[in-house]
């Protein structure tokens, strides 16, 4: 993609998406990436794409990660009850991460930091009813997105809560992006809920935006083994 844009100076890095500076909590590694990129200002005399060949150190990120918290719940319960039970089991660890960091990324939907249950309950109701168009009414939340795009950010808020929970839990390694996706979509009620919401978006075939939101809801490869995007992706769709 950089080749199409022809930036004046670009440093290609081999790091996973979401980690452009390479290694978390490693100021020296991050500064070396910056030095190499900014160094192009003194060396490049024409549009240049330079490869950065230094890999990140092994910082305990693993694709073979296993969640140490037992999330199993009574299968006879409703989806909403099981999702809330799962959230409750993760809550102590999510609180711990928030305490350690002094911050959270939860709340992009407009929900307050203490309204995780409300978002979970609303998403489970949507998954069970299949109504992916009507805005969920929740006391105390003024949603910052319209439906159905809101669904994508409800998913993100809840995934943030889950990610923050497992960031604090005991274990020898942290999950990478694939391990997090495997866990969410293979082992959690949240994953089950998101896939049901995706099915609801599929059924809303008269709403073009719904098909696009399905692709934004489920990571590539996790919707029936393939892509959740429609054949033609049009990001210019008027929401």
């Amino acid at each position: 993609m950089s080749e199409a844009v022809v930036p004046p100076r670009a440093l290609w890095v081999p790091f996973p998406l979401g980690r452009p500076l390479g290694a978390v909590n490693d100021p020296d590694f991050q500064k070396n990436v910056l030095r190499r990129a900014l160094g192009l200002l003194d060396t490049a005399v024409e549009p240049t794409i330079e490869d950065y060949v230094i890999e990140t150190p092994d910082d305990g990120v693993s694709e073979n990660w296993v969640c140490p918290v037992n999330l199993s719940s009574a299968t006879s319960d409703s989806l909403g009850e099981r999702l809330l039970a799962e959230v409750a089991m993760l809550r102590p660890w999510a609180i711990e991460t928030r305490h350690q960091r002094g911050r959270t990324l939860f709340g992009v939907t407009g929900a307050g930091e203490d309204q995780v249950d409300d978002v979970a309950r609303a998403l489970a109701t949507i998954a069970e009813s299949g109504d992916v168009i009507s805005e969920p009414l929740v006391d105390g939340i003024s949603w910052t997105f319209e439906m159905p795009l809101l669904l994508r950010h409800m998913a993100d808020d809840l995934r943030t809560f889950y990610h923050e929970a497992v960031a604090a839990q005991p274990g020898e390694s942290a999950p990478n992006h694939d391990a997090l996706n495997q866990w969410i979509f293979s082992e959690t009620v949240l994953g089950e809920t998101l896939l049901l919401v995706a099915d609801g978006l599929t059924r809303a075939s008269n709403v073009p935006m719904a098909q696009l939101v399905r692709g934004l809801l489920i990571p590539e490869g996790y919707y029936k083994g393939g892509s959740a995007f429609p054949e033609e992706v049009n990001l210019a769709i008027d929401p």
């Binding site: 998406l17 979401g18 993100d156 992006h177 997090l180």
Partner: peptide
């Protein structure tokens, strides 16, 4: 949904 927000 295809990048890792946990790093941020």
């Amino acid at each position: 949904a295809n990048f890792d927000r946990s790093a941020f």
